[in-house]
Design a protein around this nucleic acid. Structure first.
Ligand SMILES: [Mn+2]
Ligand SMILES: [Mn+2]
Ligand SMILES: [Zn+2]
Ligand SMILES: [Zn+2]
Lengths: 147, 147
DNA sequence: TTGAAATTGAAAGTCGATTTCATTTAGAAA
DNA sequence: TTTCTAAATGAAATCGACTTTCAATTTCAA
């Protein structure tokens, strides 16, 4: 990692080391606050802006990208070779992934037809996840009991 | 329109009348500032928050919905019967639309397989539009001339 | 005509994202 | 190893789009 960054003109620091490591441990869809909390539990002296800047750096060097679901929170998703879409539960904010190989193919074609040079594709489904649906059904049942 | 709003419990005002009219005249992908500017040119005394609130109202009554491209600006897109995706130019911020009937079918299936109840779908392609690509090519050519 | 409820405009507040700045540190070069 | 400069850091300030508050005004059903 240190080597990788150096070739791109960046230095390694203890803070950066810890932030990068923690980011990849947390896995998918990490927000600044989540990463800040995790890093803080390891080193209480690390600043919020340092975490934020390093998250941006992780994106700049191509290891992650920002995900914006329209809920005001920017999340950072590690870049994987296979493209994926997101299922975003409006109730519990959980984010699931699903493969979109063939869909992206169609989209690339669409772009080509319009002389548009695509850089990225975003495919999202917003709605209610299985768990939240069950919960709301249970609520309705218990309300019926009370009548 | 007045009738339509009344049945939903809202009142009509001169400001509202002008804001609604202007919104639909502007057409697609309107931001608060754009609409505010337009409305202001017609009536300088209208307040920003009134424009904002009425844009929200237009959404609430189902005539538009918010579009979030991750550039920090919320746009309001009139609701049409046919679902569409967005081509978003990262350079000039222009937004084109394209049909996504069959894609949405696939996505609905995907959701169903995961017991996810979809409420909305988002399909976006970010990249460089034809015009901006041509411009950047011209720049490169003129740079070559200067060498 | 009247009065409750909705609406308005200005101003203030919110909150995540971003920048500033003084200081420290990494690491290439000597 | 020492030196030196660009990069990095942490705290605090700032930004900016969005949202709420509040007193005054207006709508419209009764
Ligand atoms: Mn993801
Ligand atoms: Mn649209
Ligand atoms: Zn859920
Ligand atoms: Zn463009």
């Amino acid at each position: 990692m240190k080597e990788f960054l150096r070739t791109k003109g960046f230095k390694m620091t203890p803070q950066r080391e810890m932030i990068f490591r923690s980011f990849f441990e947390l896995g998918e869809h990490v927000s600044v606050d989540e990463l800040y909390d995790k890093v803080r539990s390891l080193d209480h002296s690390i600043g919020y802006s340092t975490v934020w800047r390093n998250l941006k750096l992780i994106c700049k060097v191509g290891l992650a990208e920002e995900v914006n679901l329209g809920d005001g929170i920017t999340r950072y998703d590690r870049v994987t070779k296979i493209p994926h879409g997101h299922l975003f539960c409006l109730t519990c904010k959980k984010l699931e992934e699903f493969p979109v190989d063939q869909l992206v193919g169609v989209l690339a074609e669409t772009a080509g037809e319009r002389d548009f040079t695509p850089e990225s594709f975003k495919i999202e489904i917003k709605g209610i996840c299985k768990d939240c649906l069950n919960k709301s059904e249970e609520e309705i049942e218990s309300e019926e009991d009370n009548v």
